[in-house]
Write a protein that binds this DNA or RNA. Structure first.
Length: 391
RNA sequence: GGACAGGUGGCCGAGUGGCUAAAGGCAGCAGGCUGUAAACCUGCCGCUCCUUGCGAGCUACGGGGGUUCGAAUCCUCCCCUGUCCA
């Protein structure tokens, strides 16, 4: 059903699989990491740089784009791809995360969400239907239904309510989507998206760390039927074991033939481990935000490149990295750029971090295609660690 | 030469008798960031010691001297800086 997703290879020892997501704006090889470009740009990167990085798909945010420049403006311009000059795939997030992150400015009702704009305090109402409409205007390849992402820790009652609400909203979203995207669907009665044509709609599973609720949510969302399935509401502060445990269970409850997307995750280690649990897609602000804030990922662990300890270090950020930043610039120089507050510090660190993530995912895919994923995973679990502070 | 104004911790800058090792900002140092209200935020930021405590001692508000139980704060002399007048 739905958008074409081809599983190309499966790892023998884990539930990792490699596949291809066919979109109207190109194929996306999975497992994939999607750089986050909230406001229609991956901060500090140009689109050319993203292409140099090998990014096949990026994420943008419905809430932010509706605030500025507005979905109407983007639609009139010819859609997000044309507006931001990105001919490759785009996934738009629904604003469900903002239900949590802007909770001080918002109010959830059964009908939808009231936000107060973080820019001027003006009230805005998002319903499952309006969010579908906004995203269809933006014209992304993959769109997400409005959901309610709740903070950790949350009471059973809160989680239950958010699961039920997210489920009802999922149904409404699907209904709106079916009614408005029917033209681009195959006329074979299957309701499936025509390959390489029109947007795909994913469902989102909620339920926090409560496995019963997660199961209920996973089954309900699967029952409604979507082109892909996302696991939301994780990496919001829960312990690591919970993240992995919930992911493992939920991935198992979701359809085998559809892409699985773990929203908002995570560290390099999280990615490899969750690929092993059957996840195909990830997005996370960590590589971009951390880069701007002066910390970078390396094969030896994370390091705070803005630290004075690198003031005289002539070596590259990561000796094992082949990105253009590591091939050309020293730690001392990048640390200097942070020290003097130059914008190029953000540019170079972001490029490196995204390269680190995307290159790691390339290696993950290679390992799934040709073998060696178990070894790669073992290296992550037992090795120097991809996220620990290096000495 | 004269008249004012002023000299505070690395810098800027509050403070005008005790609650002041001295507000605040900057700089510096360390760290955190997981579907981005984030080029952000948090902590530390005179020295020494220890039983690391709303701990002890030392040094400190241009310099010397003085008043006072107690001074960055009051008096006095000196040095220096700025503005204006000769």
């Amino acid at each position: 059903m739905g958008m074409r997703f081809t599983v190309v290879a499966k790892d023998a020892g884990t539930r990792a699989r490699a596949g291809i997501l066919h979109t109207a704006h190109g194929d996306v090889e999975t497992p994939v990491f999607m750089p986050v470009g909230t406001a229609g740009t991956v901060k500090a990167m140009t689109q050319t740089m993203l292409e140099e990085l090998g990014a096949q798909i990026i994420l943008a945010n419905t809430y932010h784009l509706c605030m500025r420049p507005g979905h109407e403006m983007v639609r009139e311009f010819g859609g997000l791809h044309r507006f931001i000059s990105w001919p490759h795939a785009i996934l738009t997030d629904s604003g469900g995360f903002q239900v949590m992150s802007l909770k001080g400015l918002g109010k959830v009702t059964d009908d939808g969400v009231w936000f107060r704009s973080h820019l001027d305090g003006s009230p805005h109402f998002f319903s499952p239907e309006s969010v579908m409409e906004f995203q269809l205007s933006l014209g992304a390849d993959i769109i997400m239904p409005l959901d309610e992402c709740v903070d950790y820790p949350a009471s059973h009652e809160t989680l239950k309510r958010s699961v039920r609400l997210t489920g009802r909203w999922a149904e409404r979203s699907k209904k709106y989507f079916e009614a408005n995207v029917a033209a681009s669907r195959e006329p074979d009665g299957s309701g499936h998206a025509k390959a390489n044509n029109g947007p795909s709609l994913f469902g989102i599973v909620q339920g926090g760390t409560d496995l019963d609720l997660r199961r209920e949510s996973a089954l309900e969302i699967s029952e409604i039927g979507f082109d892909g399935y996302a696991i939301g509401g994780l990496s919001v502060g829960e312990p690591k074991e919970e993240l992995y445990g919930v992911t493992e269970h939920v991935a198992g409850w979701l359809p085998e033939d559809r892409p699985r997307y773990l929203m908002g995750v995570g560290t390099p280690e999280d990615l490899v481990r969750c690929v092993a649990l059957g996840i195909d897609m990830f997005d996370c602000v960590m590589p971009t935000r951390n880069a701007r804030n002066g910390s970078v990922f390396t094969s030896e662990g994370k390091l705070v490149i803005k630290s004075a300890r690198y003031a005289h270090d002539p070596g590259p950020i990561d000796p094992a990295c082949s990105c253009i930043v590591c091939r050309r610039y020293s730690r001392a120089y990048i640390r200097h750029l942070f020290a003097v507050g130059e914008i190029s510090a953000s540019v170079l660190a972001t490029f490196h971090n995204l390269w680190f993530y995307l290159d790691m995912m390339r290696r993950v895919r290679q390992a799934i295609y040709f073998g060696g994923f178990g070894k790669l995973l073992g290296g992550v679990l037992g090795g120097p660690g991809l996220t620990s502070q290096s000495a």
